[in-house]
Design a protein around this nucleic acid. Structure first.
Length: 598
RNA sequence: GGGGGUGUAGCUCAGUUGGCCUAGAGCGCCUGUCUGUCGAACAGGAAGUCGCGGGUUCAAAUCCCGUCUCCCCCGCCA
C-alpha cells in the first residue's frame, strides 16, 4: 500500500523505502537516465531510473507516458548538490525506483495537456467537456481543495465554536412568488402538480427557528432559472444561517468573527476589525452602488443644489423634475480619456446611455484651473457655480469631471458603471487589497414604475426598523449585505416574526390576504404558535471561493459547472427523455424541434 | 429576447488588400541520439472537414447569407 504522498517527501524521508501511487506528470528521458515527475493530489516527486542503479525498473520507465497511472516502489535519496530544485517543495530529494508498475495507461490522445506551461491556457468548453482532466490540473485542483478548506473552516467555526447545527431542508419544495424563476419538477404521484427546487432555504430556516433550534446553518444548494453570468450559475451553493434571539448588531459581530476566521484559516490574514459600514443611502450617495468597490477612490459628488437654478437646462431640469446631478471626478482623466469617448458614439457615452442616461456632460480642468468644456455649460454656469463645483470635487489641473443628470436611479447607475470602467482602465484597483464592508439600512421596498407596485428589496420577510413600522413603504429594513471588493458575498436581515406585521408587508407588495395565505399560509400559521425573534444571513459560497482563489469566473470555483446556455458539456444535460417517461409524469412538451435533415 | 467577441493540427495561436496556402509556428505525439534533467536538449517524422451549410468568384481560411458552439455584457437574477 501507499506509504507516502508524493508532495510530502522531504529530506527527513531519506533512506526510507517508499511506495507511491500517482500519475506521470512528465517524463524526461536522457537515454541513460530517466526522470519521471510523479503527481498525486499533494504535488510532484521526482523518480529516477537508470540501468545501473535501478536495472529492474528501467524497462518500465522507458515505456511509461504522460498521465499513466503507476505504482512506484523505491528508496528516497538526497539529490546531488547540483540537481537540487528549489522550485519544488520536494526538490531536495528523489526516489530511485526499484519497481514501476503501470496500473493504467492512456489509450487515447489527451484532449489537452494536463501539465502545461503557466502561460498556456485551454479553451473553456474543452475544459468543461473533459472536466475530470481539467480538475487534475494544478489550478482547478487547488481551487476545489480551497473550496473544501473554506467549507471546513466554516463548519469548524459554526459548529465547534458557536453551537450551530446543520439541518438539511427539502430540495423538492413548493413554488413561491417573487424572486427568481423557479425550476419546477412534475409530480408523478400527483398529476398536474409540481415541485419547485428551492431558490434558497429561506422559509424552512425560519420554521426551524419556530422549532427552537436557535442556531441553524446549512451548506445549501440553491436553484434559480435565470440567465447566467460570469458570477452566476443556475445551481449554486449558499452558506445559509439563521439565529434566534439576536440583535442585528450581534449577528453582524458573529459574522465578522466567521469571516475573519475564514480569512485567517485560508489566507493567514488577520482582517482589521470592525469592518467598515455604510448605510445604503451613503453607499448610493458616494458610490452609486449598494455594493461599492472601495479599493479605489473616485467617489461621486452631488452638485444638484449648485446647478438647480443654472441656465443649463439639462442640469436644472433634472433637479426640478425630482432628479439629481452628480459628478464622477477623475484625477488625471484628461491624459487618458479623450472627448471622442465621451461624445455620442464613444464607449463611455454608450456606457452611460446603456445605463439610461441621455448623455454625458464633462468639464476638463486645465492648467491654472481653467475650465474646458462645451459652450452650453461654460456659458450657462456662473463663476460661483463653477467655483463651487471645483471646490466640492477637489479638482486639480488634469481632472476630468463627468456629469450625470437624470432621476436618482439612473444617475447612480450611470456613474457606478463609469466609475468601474475608469478604475479598471486607469489601473486604480489595488488587486492585493481586501476590502470587506457592511451595507446597512436598506429600504424595505422599492417602487417598480413599470408594474406600479412596491417590491421587496431584500425579501418580504425582512423586518423594518421599529421606528419605521408606521409607514412601511418608506421604512428602512433591518437588513445587511457584506461586500468583498465590490462583490456582494452575503446578505441577510432580521425577520418579521409577528403575523400581523408580515401580513402588512405582504399587503405593501400587493400580495392579497388570499394569495399570501395560499403561498405562505404555513409560515403565517407557524407564526401563530410562539415565534422567537430571529434573523440570518446567506453567503454565496461559490462567489466567495472564486474571490479567495483569485478567479474571475464562478465556474472556476465549481467542480462541474454549467455553460452560459445552462448546459453541462460533460454529461450533455439537459437532454430529451422518452415519451413514456413524460407520460408517466403526465407531461407533454409543447416545444417543436427545428426540422432536422436526415 | 438583444449587443459584442470567438471557432484554423491533439493543445495554444499566426495567417495582411481573395491568388506566392500544395495552410504555418510553438507545445504535445511518434522515431532516433544522449547518464543529472526538472517546461530537458538535439535530429527526423506523422498530424488539418480552416465550426457547419449555402452563395459570390477563374480562384475563398480570407468576401456575402444562414446556422451552431463557447465567452463577455444588457435585460433578467426578491
Amino acid at each position: 500500500m501507499r506509504t507516502h504522498y508524493c508532495g510530502d517527501l522531504r529530506a527527513t524521508d531519506i533512506d526510507q523505502t517508499v511506495t507511491l501511487f500517482g500519475w506521470v506528470d512528465r517524463r524526461r528521458d536522457h537515454g541513460g537516465v530517466i526522470f519521471i515527475d510523479l503527481r498525486d493530489r499533494t504535488g510532484l516527486a521526482q523518480i529516477v531510473s537508470d540501468p545501473e542503479r535501478t536495472p529492474d525498473s528501467y524497462p518500465m520507465a522507458e515505456d511509461v507516458r504522460n498521465e499513466y497511472v503507476v505504482k512506484i516502489v523505491g528508496r528516497v535519496y538526497q539529490r546531488p548538490p547540483a540537481s537540487l530544485n528549489p522550485k519544488l517543495p520536494t526538490g531536495e530529494v528523489e526516489i530511485y525506483a526499484d519497481t514501476i508498475e503501470v496500473l493504467n495507461t492512456v489509450r487515447k490522445q489527451l484532449p489537452f495537456q494536463v501539465s502545461l506551461a503557466d502561460n498556456e491556457t485551454v479553451r473553456e468548453d474543452l475544459r468543461l467537456k473533459y472536466r475530470y482532466l481539467d480538475l487534475r490540473r494544478e489550478r482547478m485542483n487547488h481551487n476545489i481543495r480551497l473550496r473544501h478548506a473554506v467549507v471546513k473552516a466554516i463548519r469548524r467555526f459554526l459548529e465547534d465554536q458557536q453551537g450551530f447545527i446543520e439541518v438539511e431542508t427539502p430540495v423538492l419544495t413548493r413554488s413561491t412568488p417573487e424572486g427568481a424563476r423557479d425550476y419546477i419538477l412534475p409530480s408523478r404521484v400527483n398529476p398536474g402538480q409540481w415541485f419547485a427546487l428551492p431558490q434558497s432555504p429561506q422559509l424552512f430556516k425560519q420554521l426551524l427557528m419556530v422549532s427552537g433550534f436557535d442556531r441553524y446553518y446549512q451548506i445549501a444548494r440553491c436553484f434559480r432559472d435565470e440567465d447566467l453570468r460570469a458570477d452566476r450559475q443556475p445551481e449554486f451553493t449558499q452558506l445559509d444561517m439563521e439565529m434566534s434571539f439576536m440583535s442585528q448588531e450581534e449577528i453582524i459581530q458573529l459574522n465578522e468573527d466567521l469571516v475573519c476566521h475564514i480569512f485567517k484559516e485560508i489566507k493567514g490574514i488577520d482582517l482589521p476589525r470592525p469592518f467598515p459600514r455604510l448605510t445604503y443611502a451613503e453607499a448610493m450617495d458616494r458610490y452609486g452602488s449598494d455594493r461599492p468597490d472601495t479599493r479605489y477612490g473616485l467617489e461621486l459628488v452631488d452638485v444638484s443644489d449648485v446647478v438647480q437654478d443654472s441656465k443649463f437646462k439639462v442640469f436644472s431640469g433634472a433637479v426640478k423634475s425630482g432628479g439629481i446631478v452628480k459628478i464622477l471626478p477623475i484625477p488625471n482623466g484628461n491624459d487618458h480619456i479623450s472627448n471622442v469617448r465621451i461624445k455620442p458614439g464613444g464607449d463611455l457615452f454608450n456606457e452611460a446611455t446603456d445605463a439610461g442616461a441621455k448623455g454625458l456632460a464633462y468639464i476638463r480642468v486645465r492648467d491654472d484651473m481653467v475650465i474646458d468644456t462645451i459652450g452650453a455649460i461654460k456659458d450657462n454656469l456662473t463663476n460661483e457655480q463653477k467655483q463651487e463645483i471645483l471646490n466640492r470635487t477637489g479638482a486639480q489641473p488634469g481632472h476630468l469631471l463627468l456629469f450625470a443628470a437624470a432621476d436618482t436611479t439612473t444617475v447612480n447607475k450611470t456613474l457606478d458603471r463609469l466609475r468601474q470602467v475608469v478604475a479598471k482602465e486607469l489601473e486604480l484597483v489595488d488587486t492585493d487589497a481586501i476590502n470587506l464592508l457592511w451595507v446597512t439600512e436598506f429600504p424595505m421596498f422599492e417602487w417598480n414604475a413599470d408594474e406600479k407596485r412596491y417590491e421587496a428589496l431584500h425579501h418580504p420577510f425582512t423586518a423594518p426598523y421599529p421606528d419605521d413600522q408606521a409607514d412601511l413603504p418608506t421604512a428602512r429594513a433591518q437588513a445587511y449585505d457584506i461586500v468583498f471588493n465590490g462583490f456582494e458575498i452575503g446578505g441577510g436581515s432580521l425577520r418579521i416574526y409577528q403575523s400581523e406585521l408580515q401580513t402588512k408587508a405582504f399587503e405593501t407588495i400587493g400580495l392579497s390576504d388570499e394569495e399570501a395565505q395560499e403561498k405562505f399560509g404555513f409560515l403565517l400559521e407557524a407564526f401563530e404558535y410562539g415565534t422567537p425573534p430571529h434573523g440570518g444571513i446567506a453567503y454565496g459560497l461559490d462567489r466567495l471561493v472564486m474571490l479567495l482563489a483569485g478567479e474571475e469566473s464562478i465556474r472556476d470555483a465549481i467542480a462541474f459547472p454549467k455553460t452560459q446556455q445552462a448546459r453541462c458539456l460533460l454529461t450533455q444535460a439537459p437532454s430529451t427523455v422518452d415519451n413514456a417517461q413524460l407520460q408517466e409524469l403526465h407531461v407533454a412538451s409543447t416545444h417543436k424541434p427545428k426540422k432536422q435533415e436526415d
